[in-house]
Design a protein around this nucleic acid. Structure first.
Lengths: 259, 259
DNA sequence: GAACATAATTCGATAATGTCGAATAGAAAG
DNA sequence: CTTTCTATTCGACATTATCGAATTATGTTC
């Protein structure tokens, strides 16, 4: 298959994706510089995107930011995820019972992305990470998905990722992580013990599609002081149960080897 | 300014926006038919969008749906809304005190779109409408924004909108609505009494930017049985207060005529 | 399981369209 | 008011997106 991709659409995508890495407004010049394209080219792209509501120009400084049309489309996406729809009531029940925050992530194109979040009543932070990428080496969800990929994919993912240390407990050695993933595979769940944020503990389990591929995960996050051994055991049970339930609803039949 | 828009980017936008009106997956043929373009043209567009993560092909039926990249971008949008960031803590306080669901909408390009939602503990429906359009003639937020546009804009909006009846209480007569908007202007808030959904009452107030233009609104929604006269008066007070606070933080100075 | 029907994908030729560099207009800074 | 940015427009040209036809894949019926 000779990819016959359309240049100007790719460039439009390049423009939009500039905003993923910089949280501020961008000027035409900044964009054309960063993309290595002429100003007039980028200008044409930008004006088209603006006309369609994908970008919005700030009249004060003439800079651009992402437009509402993307918001509309973005919110339509999760509607189209059978997974989200299907998982939502199960997550709701988890939150109601455990009174802690539960996340749903999906794994696509080598990225783990938060798609759903329900906060427990005791939630402290209101800041959402929905729509953001989860690091694969230091989150429960990332590790539980990683652990159930085939050897090749796992290797590829670990190599393509900067194993950035978030806290003093973050594992940054590839071999150490791979050994740890083995344990996760055996247990059927992953934990994150202050590996991404001090004081935060997480329990996560993978969700399988009908092919048996780990395509998503759910996790329960709580401050460390509310995640003692006994309670953690209870949460592990519930998270594994919920993940298995969602997997089953996704058409996953076969009992996994690790159960 | 002769618009020099880029055709293939516009067509890519056309493709994506097909998904806003149909909630199912779409096949290549459906899309090329609906757009009146050749299959190969649309195919090129689709494959580019898929390659970049804006579309995703379902391997079972070869149909396409929106991709995760849009989800990522969409969630980045609200980060860039100063408004959302700024309003969030104020909304949070409202929800905590009133124990009811509060919405934030913004008005852009002639559309009123839900951008933020916080549910009270007694919320019944978990289904979110974030990212969706609010009808302007039968929602508190829609009406409160409408009421504070200039005559010309108001007329234009009312004419371009199908005044669809959602319940037996929906106002569908343009003149009746315009008269009602006058009252809203005088009061500084709008209510929705089962106009969009039976059993649901709403109180909303507009938010003004530094030019004094109504660019957003917040509302509090509750089942009718929890919105008696006395409680409604309290909610009106709180919603107006919150909207005024947000407006002030947006740089709105001048006291509006209606206060 | 073969034959048909329908849809997806690829290919080649062509004209249209997106691209660039230069010119102009518009802000901001000195 | 001049200078220096940056945003925007314009004209010419070659690239590139487009279409229709051909091919491959899928799934449907008997």
């Amino acid at each position: 298959m000779t990819e016959r991709l359309i240049q100007s659409i790719e460039r439009a995508a390049d423009v939009l994706e500039l905003f993923l890495t910089s949280s501020e407004e961008l000027s035409l010049k900044e964009m054309s510089d960063r993309l290595g394209l002429s100003k007039s080219t980028v200008h044409g792209i930008i004006k088209t995107l603006e006309y369609r509501g994908y970008l919005k120009q700030n009249p004060n400084n003439l800079k651009y930011k992402l437009g509402l049309k993307l918001f509309e489309l973005g919110n339509k996406v999760s509607d189209q995820f059978d997974l989200s729809k299907l998982a939502r009531p199960i997550i709701k029940e988890l939150v109601d019972d455990l009174k802690e925050t539960v996340h749903l992530v999906v794994f696509e194109r080598g990225e783990v992305i938060y798609v759903e979040k329900m906060e427990g009543p005791q939630a402290i932070r209101i800041y959402s990470q929905v729509g953001k990428k989860a690091p694969i080496h230091c989150t429960g969800v990332g590790k539980s998905i990683l652990a159930f990929q085939d050897e090749e994919e796992m290797e590829r993912l670990l190599s393509n990722t900067e194993l950035k240390p978030y806290t003093e407990f973050t594992m940054t050695d590839k071999e150490e992580i791979k050994k740890h993933l083995q344990t996760i595979r055996e247990q059927g769940y992953a934990t994150d013990d202050e590996e991404i944020e001090l004081g935060l503990k997480c329990v996560a389990a993978p969700i399988f599609d009908h092919h048996g591929k780990a395509i998503a995960a759910i996790s329960c996050a709580a401050p460390k002081f509310r995640m003692g051994d006994e309670r953690q055991t209870e949460i592990i049970r519930r998270i594994k149960e919920a993940a298995a339930m969602i997997s089953r609803n996704m058409g996953y039949q076969q009992k996994p080897a690790h159960v």
